[in-house]
């Protein structure tokens, strides 16, 4: 049986492999190739070497977007995970109406980023109107606006992951800790948190990559205003590619750099949080 499966495995893999090649590998390689070209449409590319990459690093808006994104990612990863874990911890205590709360907290995740962005824009502008300001008045407002929006959207999802993690802790471990006389905070710090490290790995990974690649919410909420001060990397790439004639190749080069950055950061993060996971 096993031998037959082994023998025929290429046949079974073939359809999906072809789809994967056409839908992923080819565009990916084409994308890297295009980053070395000057082109208007993807079919008329002319090879120009590394000049696109040189232009990327002389573009102040890209550097600014990089720092803005980095700052946002740090803030978002910390706040989302802390809040999500807190809520998950509270909702596994067996209060009445736990299920209702879980549903309610999860719901924002079901709404698309563009819609959320416009809704929150209305809310923020409505509040700021009392101070005769708007969300795009300064980058600080935009930053915190994005942070609140992302927390509102992502906390519910991460909460579900943490709840699953907490519920997975075997009752015997908890019981043993109690019998040994551990206080509540000791149980939290010494038992629960180490035991949910796999969930932390997943949640941090998801929030990290989501924040780094944030696009819809950024576009809908501030669109980079004022003066590109709230423009994040993905939006900056989009604006370069589509907004500037003759800069398609530069946008493509930015996208390649962006890919490398996201991959490196995500792998590093996975490596470090994996190391902290424990077996019970």
């Amino acid at each position: 049986m096993n031998r037959t499966i082994k023998k025929y495995s290429p046949i079974f893999v073939l359809p999906t492999l072809l789809a994967f090649i056409i839908g992923f590998i080819v565009p990916f390689i084409l994308g890297i190739y295009l980053s070395f070209c000057k082109f208007t449409t993807v079919t008329d590319a002319k090879f120009t070497g590394i000049s696109n990459y040189q232009k990327v690093f002389s573009d102040d808006s890209f550097i600014h977007a990089l720092w803005f994104t980095a700052l946002f990612t740090v803030a978002a990863v910390v706040t989302i995970n802390v809040i999500a874990f807190t809520i998950a911890y509270l909702l596994t205590k067996g209060f009445k109406g736990t299920n209702l709360f879980r549903t309610v907290f999860f719901m924002p995740n079901l709404i698309g980023g563009i819609v959320l962005g416009y809704i929150w824009q209305l809310i923020f502008n409505g509040i700021l109107l009392y101070f005769a300001k708007t969300l795009t008045f300064s980058a600080t407002y935009g930053f915190f606006g994005l942070l609140i929006l992302m927390n509102w959207q992502q906390v519910g999802y991460m909460m579900i992951i943490y709840i699953a993690g907490i519920q997975n802790i075997s009752p015997s471990v908890m019981e043993a800790a109690k019998i040994d006389g551990a206080s509540r905070s000791q149980i939290l710090r010494k038992v629960i948190i180490p035991m949910v490290m796999p969930s932390v790995t997943i949640s941090v990974f998801l929030t990290l990559t989501n924040s780094f690649k944030l696009f819809d919410q950024n576009l809908a909420l501030t669109a980079g205003e004022p003066s590109k001060m709230t423009e994040m990397l993905a939006l900056n790439i989009f604006n370069t590619f589509y907004g500037r004639t003759g800069f398609e190749g530069v946008g493509q080069a930015k996208a390649v750099i962006f890919f490398v950055l996201v991959a490196v950061i995500a792998l590093l993060q996975l490596y470090y949080t994996r190391k902290r996971e424990v077996q019970a």
Binding site: F137, S227, R244
Partner: peptide
């Protein structure tokens, strides 16, 4: 020269208008 130029002028006009 480009859309980028217009955007730059637009952003500067806005910042001037709102006092930032």
């Amino acid at each position: 020269p480009s859309e980028e130029w217009k955007n730059g002028v637009g952003s500067a006009l806005l910042e001037y208008a709102q006092g930032t």
